[in-house]
């Protein structure tokens, strides 16, 4: 736009836009982009995170990752993908079902919406500690009371079961968030379309699968995208519940990066893993986003 042709009003609006976004831009720069560029540099160095002088070693860290040197990272990636797949399915299916139920008019609907949303506003660390208590002491007491074998399983002490515990707690915690998104989507569906479908003789399930679900496209895309990124980034709940144990069975990619950088004192290698993981997440999310967007129907 030519400056001279800009009216004083427009110029003022532009100035204000710049002024109001500036603090946010500065914060995001400091907290995200600058560290990102710095870890890009550190990924090319051998550095323990302590000494004054990182040693530049070119692409050697990446070679270490892609050669056999890092089975832990591969295991962590597999774990993360498994977790993400289950998390996405459970949280979306359950959230959609509950959202449909909660948009029906009944007495406790609002109260229940609040109840389901409550875990989401709790800190993940607190949620982790609460569930740790439930899995250990709580289940022990339940076993004493009922004698059912399911309570006597070592939910956090067995690698396979610990994985399921994490999926269950992770889904439980964030369910409320997706329910809210789906409720918003459901309420945006025009009543006339539903009425027309009823008049045309569509049954309840036909109305849901042929009308509601296609019209929920944008909500589904958003929820899929959010649940995908959130589950790939899973970190705090594992730290609070299992710390990657037992026997290293529940390391996610992010936790493995943290371990490499801060516990094993391989800051350079950890940064390189973070970059690799960043590329994987970037590609995955873009592909998923494209697929779901192309399937949306226009209202």
């Amino acid at each position: 736009m030519d400056k001279k042709s800009m009216s004083p009003m427009n110029r003022k609006a532009l100035k204000e836009t710049l002024l109001f976004t500036l603090p946010a831009v500065v914060m995001v720069l400091i907290a995200i982009y600058i560290p990102f560029v710095m870890s890009g540099y550190y990924s090319l160095t051998e550095w323990n995170g302590i000494s004054r002088n990182p040693v530049f070693i070119g692409l050697n860290n990446f070679k270490t990752i892609f050669s056999s040197g890092s089975p832990e990272f591969v295991n962590a990636l597999v774990f993360t993908f498994k977790y993400s797949a289950l998390f996405i399915v459970f949280s979306n299916v359950l959230a959609l079902a509950l959202a449909v139920a909660l948009t029906k008019e009944f007495k406790l609907a609002n109260f229940l919406r609040g109840m389901f949303f409550l875990p989401y506003i709790m800190s993940m660390t607190i949620v982790g500690f609460i569930w740790k208590f439930i899995f250990t002491q709580g289940f022990e007491k339940l076993y004493e009371l009922t004698g059912w074998g399911i309570w006597n399983l070592s939910w956090l002490g067995d690698g396979g079961l610990a994985f399921w515990s994490l999926v269950i707690v992770g889904t439980w915690q964030s369910l409320g968030f997706y329910i809210v998104l789906y409720i918003a989507g459901l309420q945006a569906i025009p009543k006339e379309v539903m009425e027309a479908a009823s008049i045309d003789g569509a049954t309840g399930s036909q109305r849901f699968f042929r009308v509601t679900l296609p019209l929920l496209g944008p909500s589904i895309t958003t929820c899929m995208f959010m649940s995908l990124t959130n589950s790939l980034k899973v970190f705090d709940i594992i730290l609070a519940l299992t710390k990657g144990g037992p026997g290293g069975a529940t390391y996610s990619a992010t936790l493995d990066i943290y371990r490499e950088a801060f516990q094993n004192n391989n800051y350079g290698l950890g940064s390189a893993k973070a970059i690799v993981f960043f590329v994987i997440v970037l590609v995955l999310t873009q592909v998923v986003l494209k697929i779901f967007e192309s399937r949306e129907v226009q209202q």
């Binding site: 037992p246 026997g247 290293g248």
Partner: peptide, 21 residues
């Protein structure tokens, strides 16, 4: 030994106790 190693050792023995190795 460093604590990095000690932690890795702990995890290996946990895996032994858990029966995975």
């Amino acid at each position: 030994s460093s604590d990095s190693f000690n932690q890795a050792m702990g995890e290996a023995i946990q895996a032994y106790i858990g029966g995975t190795i």
